[in-house]
Computed example of a mutant assay.
Amino acid sequence: MRGLTITPKLLLSAMGLSKYTVFEGELNLNIIGIRSDNTRANTFNDLICVLYQQNGEWQLKQYKATTDAGIYWRKHPMNVDGTAVLVAGQHLGLWTFGYHQGKYKALVQNKPVLVLRDNDKNEDLQTDGSQAELQSGYFGINCHRAGEHVESKLVGKWSAGCQVIADPRDYEEFISLCEQSAARYGTIFSYTLLEQNQIKRNKEDV
Rank of each mutant, 00 (worst) to 15 (best):
L51D: 00
G70T: 07
N55K: 14
Q62V: 14
N45H: 08
L12R: 08
G33P: 03
L94C: 11
L60F: 12
L94G: 10
A132N: 07
P112R: 00
G82D: 03
I48E: 12
L29I: 09
T43F: 12
P112K: 02
Y72S: 10
T96E: 12
N45Q: 08
Q62N: 11
F44H: 09
A84H: 13
A65I: 01
R74Y: 01
D118W: 06
Q53A: 10
N30E: 00
V80K: 15
Y99E: 13
S130C: 06
L17W: 14
Q101C: 06
F97P: 02
D46N: 02
Q131Y: 12
R35G: 08
L116F: 00
T21L: 08
G33H: 04
E123V: 09
R74C: 04
G82S: 01
H100R: 03
L86E: 04
A41F: 12
L116A: 02
D128F: 03
A132Y: 06
Q90K: 05
A132S: 13
D118V: 11
H100Q: 06
A41G: 14
L27I: 03
G33I: 04
G102M: 07
Q62S: 14
D128L: 01
T127I: 15
Q101L: 13
S13H: 12
K111D: 07
E57K: 14
Q53R: 14
V85A: 11
N42I: 03
N45G: 09
H100E: 03
Q126I: 15
E57P: 02
W95L: 08
F44L: 08
V113M: 07
R35F: 06
W58S: 02
A65Q: 07
H76N: 15
T83F: 02
Q54C: 05
L134D: 06
A106S: 04
S18K: 14
I31Q: 02
V108G: 03
K61I: 09
F44R: 05
D120E: 08
K75V: 02
G70D: 06
Q59A: 07
W73C: 12
V113S: 10
V113I: 14
G98M: 02
V80F: 12
N38R: 06
N42Q: 03
Q62H: 10
D120Q: 04
